[in-house]
């Protein structure tokens, strides 16, 4: 079957088994290895991408279901010479990243969250992260960085990923 979709803003065509998990196409066919395949069971969140702006696990997404959709991976959040997403800036500033395995998924889940929840409280940030497992950081620094990102945007009256906060 031929599946076509937008991948980081460009046309993408896949010919093959429509039940192939999206993560495998991203990594093995498109060499977009920022998206990690860790548990392959929907539990860890390392494979999170945006499909039509929603953060979803790509390990359980048969590619046939993304026909006609827009897929964004961590590589699509910012290319090498562009400014980083404000959340990435805050993760870097807070030195929140350790081994980095979970972070592409964290950024994809939480960037959609900050876009949709500009006034989120700390418990709400934590609730949004329950599907993203990190084995290194103990989470608090990540929560700090997300809270700081929202705070900065509120103070500056800016947009985080398109929504006015």
């Amino acid at each position: 079957m031929t599946v076509t979709f937008q991948l980081n803003g460009e046309d993408c065509r896949f010919d093959g088994d429509p039940m192939t998990p999206l993560v495998d196409i991203l990594r093995q066919e498109r060499f977009l290895t920022g998206t990690k395949a860790v548990c392959r069971e929907g539990f860890c969140g390392a494979c999170t991408v945006h499909v039509d702006d929603e953060a979803v696990p790509s390990c359980l997404k048969p590619v046939g279901l993304v026909h006609g959709c827009a897929v964004t991976t961590i590589e699509g959040m910012s290319s090498g010479n562009q400014a980083l997403h404000p959340l990435q800036v805050n993760f870097e500033a807070a030195d929140a990243v350790q081994c980095g395995m979970c972070f592409p998924g964290m950024v994809m889940s939480l960037s959609a969250f900050v876009r949709d929840n500009p006034h989120a409280s700390r418990p709400e940030i934590k609730a949004a992260m329950v599907g993203n497992i990190c084995r290194c950081t103990g989470y608090e620094r990540i929560v700090d960085a997300v809270a700081e990102c929202l705070d900065q945007a509120r103070k500056a009256g800016q947009l985080v990923g398109g929504i006015h906060v």
Binding site: G42, E54, A55, L60, K61, G131
Partner: peptide
Amino acid sequence: AANPGIRRV
């Protein structure tokens, strides 16, 4: 149920 990413799907 589950986690936010699964609940969206």
